[in-house]
Amino acid sequence: MGKKKQVLFPKHIDILKHMGENIKLARKRRKLTQQQVSERADIVRSTLYLIESGAPSVAIGAYFNVLRVLGLQEDFLKLAADDEFGRKLQDLDLL
């Protein structure tokens, strides 16, 4: 059975690209090469290139390891942390 391709809308692809660009800028601010980060994250350099491009096909664990190398692993805790819509639904349920 083949791997299922992720289908994303253009506005969501833009979000991933923006995140990849943020990761790339963080790497450059730390004056680290792609080779250094990929070795420390235990991924191949081409995977880091995909991460910095915002590719949706890269495993979330690889994204996490790159953030860990950059000292940004706590940013993972911010994902879905501000669930405003979910809280509104919950509040409606309480009424």
Rank of each mutant, 00 (worst) to 15 (best):
I13M: 10
F64L: 13
K4F: 05
Q35R: 09
K78E: 15
V37G: 10
A26Y: 09
D91Q: 11
T47R: 11
D42A: 11
S46K: 09
Q35W: 05
Q34E: 13
H18F: 01
E21C: 11
K78Q: 14
L72P: 03
K11D: 15
K3T: 06
D75K: 14
T47K: 11
L32W: 08
S57Y: 03
R87Y: 15
K78H: 14
L79C: 06
A80G: 10
F64V: 07
G86T: 08
L50N: 13
T33Q: 13
Q73I: 14
V69M: 06
K11P: 12
F9C: 08
E84W: 03
L72N: 08
V44Q: 15
T33E: 08
H12A: 02
I43A: 00
S57I: 05
E84V: 07
R30M: 11
D82M: 07
F9I: 07
L70P: 01
T47C: 10
A41R: 01
E74F: 11
F85R: 09
L8H: 03
L48M: 01
E21Y: 13
G86R: 13
T33R: 09
E21W: 07
D82H: 09
R45H: 03
D82K: 08
L8F: 15
V37N: 10
K3Q: 07
T33N: 07
F9Y: 06
A26F: 10
A62F: 01
I43Y: 00
F9Q: 11
K24N: 02
Q35F: 06
H12M: 01
N65I: 04
K78Y: 09
S53Q: 13
L72T: 04
A55S: 15
K3N: 04
V69R: 09
K4A: 04
L72S: 05
D14G: 10
K88H: 15
G2C: 03
A80L: 12
L79E: 03
A26H: 09
G2L: 08
G20W: 08
K5W: 07
H18I: 00
V66K: 11
I51M: 05
R27A: 03
L32M: 11
L16R: 06
D83F: 10
V66R: 12
L70W: 00
D93P: 07
D93M: 15
A62P: 00
D91Y: 04
G86F: 12
M19E: 07
L92K: 11
T33Y: 06
K3D: 05
Q34I: 05
I15W: 04
Q6S: 08
M19P: 01
R87A: 12
L48D: 00
L77T: 09
L70Y: 00
S38V: 00
R87S: 15
A80V: 09
R27D: 02
L16M: 12
D42S: 14
S46C: 05
L95Y: 09
E21G: 09
K4G: 02
R27M: 01
L77M: 13
I60K: 02
M1D: 01
I51L: 08
L72Q: 07
A62V: 00
E84D: 02
K5C: 05
I23D: 05
K28F: 08
D14Q: 12
H18P: 00
R45Y: 01
K28W: 03
H18L: 04
I51F: 03
V58S: 00
K24D: 00
R40D: 06
